[in-house]
Every structure is written in structure tokens, then in C-alpha cells.
Computed example of a mutant assay.
Amino acid sequence: MFEDILSATIRGATPLLLAALGEVVSQRAGVLNIGIEGMMLIGAFFGMVGSFYMAEFAVFAPWFGLLMAGLSGLIAAALFALFAIRFRGDQVIIGTAMTLLALGLTEVIYQRLFGVTGIAQGVPAFPQIDIPLLSKIPYVGRSLFSHNILVYITFLLLPCVYFFLYHTQLGLRIRACGEHPKAIATTGSNVLRLRTFCLLFAGAMAGMAGAYLSIADVPYFTPGMTVGRGFIALAIVIFGKWHPVKACGAALLFGLGSALDARFQALGWGIPYQLWLMLPYVLCLAVMAGFVGRAEAPLALGKPYGESE
């Protein structure tokens, strides 16, 4: 039972962490990407479409789907950057509009391609990979080292993002961009370019996080299948105080809530399943309200910046 819960916790945390890592970089640069939910949904859709239409090349199909998902998230982020960074629009309103656009657009295209009944099978997915020797470790081996490749990639990205933000000159400029953009502009750095770069990275990460849902976790797509995970990723960034390692802990906590939700439903206690579905979100709210403490966002987060300033 412990192994099953631990394995489910990691699987549930993976798409949240993948999206949150991109969002940490974006918000550190001062861009509040509220549209992350829509970017995840777009990634889930185009990831499934790419993998489905490349099904005859079974080995490469999921990778093509992942590429499609990352590109679709990047394109969505570029659209966000045009209005929010270039034209200095309200980032919250633009992000909300993007999420609503993604909800409608993916459902319309999905029904156009696959009909009202949709498609529930035939989508090549990433297979489970058992790491030799490590997967045989008693009690935790199967839980930690028997997952699909995207799980391993996500947790390998964690130290990479941490090192990039805190141990490189570009990472320092990005963090300064989110705290005091005027100061970093005086050093010759282009604030708008830096913010756009970070937002595009966040969009690609969100797209790949969505692809995890449709071509790694379960090999199918349903409209609205992200069911708020993008907003949870936003909460994870705050819970983690805009730090990638702490955000990982928050993602694992939410993954644990999802794992317990499935486990409690299987026990058949006669409690309406909707209450168990609420568990991860209630757990997240409880932690945010009572245990996070004061979290100070980057000073320039969500504030437009003009080159003339």
C-alpha cells in the first residue's frame, strides 16, 4: 500500500512540478502567467494529436506529441507576450482570456477531428521504464524508479532550473528583472526580451506538462482534462515562495492528496466520491492558509514595463 501511494504521489506531482518550474522562472522575471491552465490544456490536446497521427511510428509517436505540445505551449505564450509584455496589457485579464480561449478552441477542434464521441484509445503513450537495479530496491524501488521517461526528465530538470536561477549570470538578471527592472535596464539588459524569454520557457513547460496528462499518464484526451491543474501550479509557486526546490515539495504534497483521494474512493466507505475529489484542493488551501507563512512575491510581479521607463 505504501509503495502504491508513493508511486501515485510522484505521478500526480509530475505535471504540476513541470508547469510550476516554468512558472517560477516566469514570475521571477516579473510576469504573472495566469494563462498557464490554458497552455496546459493546449499542450494536452496537441500532444495527443501529434502522437495519434504518428501512431504508425510507435516508438517516436509520443516524442513527436511531446514536441507538438511544447511548441503549442510556446506559441500560446508568444501570444500572451505580445499583449501582456509588448502592448503592456493587464496580465491577469489576458491570462484569463487565454484560458477561456483554450477551453473553447480545443473542444471545437477535438470534435471536428474526432466527432462528438471523441477518441479513447489508439494514442501511443510513453511506456514505463524500470531502471535496472534501482527499481529492485525493497519498499521504495518500484515507487521511485518505475515510471515513464517524463517523470525522470521532470525531476532532473529541478536541479537544472535551480542552478540556472541561482548560479548563473542570466539567472541573476532574470531575478533582478522581477525585483527592479529599471535597475537591470541600466546595466544594458533588455527587460522586455528577458521577460519574453522566460514566458516562452514557461509556456513550453506548461505545454509539456499538459502532454504528460494525455500521452504519459493516460493515453487519451477529453475536453477540459486539466481540471484546474494550471491554477494549482500557480498556487504551488506561491506555496514554494518562488523557489524551485520548495515548489517541488508543494507539488509532492498535492500529489499525495491526489493519491489519497484515489485510495479512499477504493475503500468504499459510502462517502460520496465528490468529497474525495475535493481532498487535494482542500489540502492545498489548508496549507496555503495556515502553514506557508508570509510569502513575498517579486516586487515587480505583474507590473508592465515600458522601454521608455
Rank of each mutant, 00 (worst) to 15 (best):
G203C: 08
A55C: 03
Y305W: 14
G210V: 10
T168F: 05
L192P: 00
S143C: 03
M225V: 14
L134I: 12
P159K: 08
P298R: 09
F57I: 11
Q27A: 11
I5D: 00
L158I: 10
A211P: 06
L283W: 08
G293V: 10
Y212I: 10
E107M: 14
N148C: 02
Y53P: 03
Q121Y: 09
V151G: 04
A125V: 13
W63Y: 15
P280G: 11
L199H: 00
R294L: 10
L41H: 12
A84Y: 04
R229F: 00
I238E: 01
P138A: 11
P304Y: 01
L213D: 07
L260A: 04
I137A: 13
V25C: 06
F114Y: 15
A61T: 03
P15Q: 10
I174Y: 06
L301F: 08
I119N: 07
G257F: 06
I42E: 03
G43A: 11
V237M: 08
G89C: 12
F45V: 03
V140Q: 08
G249N: 05
W269H: 07
L156T: 14
G228M: 08
A251L: 01
L199M: 15
Q169G: 00
A58K: 14
G306Y: 07
L105F: 15
G268D: 12
T187K: 12
S308K: 13
A58G: 04
A289R: 05
Q91N: 08
Y305V: 01
N190Y: 06
E3K: 08
L156D: 01
G141W: 09
P280E: 05
A235E: 09
Y305T: 00
I94Q: 01
M205S: 05
L41S: 08
G207H: 07
I109E: 00
Y220H: 09
L172S: 09
M54V: 12
G47C: 05
K136M: 09
P304I: 02
Y220E: 06
I232F: 01
I85E: 03
H147R: 02
T117S: 13
V191S: 10
L277K: 13
S26C: 15
F87S: 11
H180W: 08
A185R: 14
Q169K: 13
A235G: 15
I174Q: 09
G12A: 15
V227M: 13
V140I: 15
P15L: 00
G230Y: 03
F45A: 09
C284M: 15
E307I: 10
V237R: 04
F64D: 00
A202Q: 06
P304R: 04
P124I: 07
A29N: 01
P298L: 06
